[in-house]
């Protein structure tokens, strides 16, 4: 039953997201080709008021807006998938299926995670497509040389990627489950349920920040914790100890551990509220 639930959840979100991914890939290729054309024409400064330059600029702007829109839509669609199917009018169907509340909540959570991961993958693939059009062989060689000078033998780029993926996955799941528990608790209000959900989300975020600060006082290893963006930025820009490098096992343990604890708590909270306090209006 869980697989069937996930199948329908993915279909629902996919109807909106897949065309967006396709548009991103097409635009990335078009922007890359346009920039390549500008470069071949000798207009490396593509902001210059030449026609190819302006077209390239517009394509790049639209592509950037599309990536931003895709990120926002991923969050909107996974949130709507949860709210509309379990607490909206469709809840009259979904909550009367012969499946457990756990299956429902886990299916929605996994669905959110999958679409966040697919969004990340689509962004990476489209960016690579654009670069393949823009960069020549010697540009790639220069790029890899620079990367090598930056990281040297201090760290493996694959290890860094693995750490980033782990933190990204856990961070994304933590945000998705926090949204779900906030909506569920907000639904307990007789009216203004949306406001209730927002207040719950803000309250949880403040609480997490306080806990994070407390942990940082206890051990500096906790200082990279609980912020997905913070983790990625500090790693890529070398803010981890002043230079680019891998997180230590203890740092990873603190960051991942906190996320896992929050995910479990948010899931338990959501399931408990839906099972014991369900109030479908």
């Amino acid at each position: 039953m869980f697989r069937k639930l996930l199948k329908y959840d993915m279909k629902e979100v996919g109807m909106v997201m897949l065309p967006l991914y396709a548009a991103m890939l097409v635009l990335a290729a078009a922007a890359g080709l346009s920039m390549r054309f500008s470069i071949m024409k000798g207009t490396r400064d593509f902001v210059a008021s030449t026609v190819p330059g302006v077209v390239t600029l517009i394509l790049m702007l639209v592509y950037g807006a599309l990536i931003l829109g895709m990120a926002v839509m991923t969050l909107v669609m996974t949130t709507r998938n949860f709210r509309d199917n379990l607490l909206g009018s469709r809840g009259y169907l979904m909550n009367t299926l012969p499946v457990t509340t756990q299956s429902q909540v886990l299916s929605k959570s996994l669905n959110g995670l999958i679409w966040i991961a697919l969004g990340g993958a689509a962004s990476a693939v489209s960016g690579t497509i654009a670069l393949l059009f823009i960069m020549r062989k010697q540009d790639w060689a220069e790029f890899f040389q620079t990367m090598n000078e930056m990281f040297g033998d201090r760290m493996s780029p694959w290890m860094m990627l693995l750490q980033l993926v782990i933190l990204f996955v856990l961070g994304a799941l933590q945000i998705v489950t926090k949204i779900f528990v906030s909506i569920s608790v907000g639904n307990l209000w007789r009216s203004k349920r949306g406001l209730g959900a927002v207040l719950m989300f803000v309250g949880l975020t403040v609480l997490q920040t306080l806990i994070g600060n407390r942990l940082t006082h206890l051990t500096p290893d906790a200082s990279i914790s609980y912020s997905l963006m913070g983790n990625g930025i500090s790693m890529v820009f070398g803010l981890n100890g002043g230079e680019a490098g891998l997180f230590t096992a203890r740092q990873m343990g603190f960051a991942a551990g906190q996320d896992i604890v929050y995910i479990v708590l948010f899931l338990i909270g959501t399931i408990w509220v839906l099972r014991n306090k369900m109030d479908l209006q």
Partner: peptide, 21 residues
């Protein structure tokens, strides 16, 4: 009411409840 009872009950609510898409 639970998964077992829901497999026995066919319910028609007083509103639209099917996925519109």
């Amino acid at each position: 009411p639970g998964p077992e009872s829901k497999s026995l009950v066919a319910y028609l609510p007083d509103r639209d409840f099917l996925p519109p898409y």
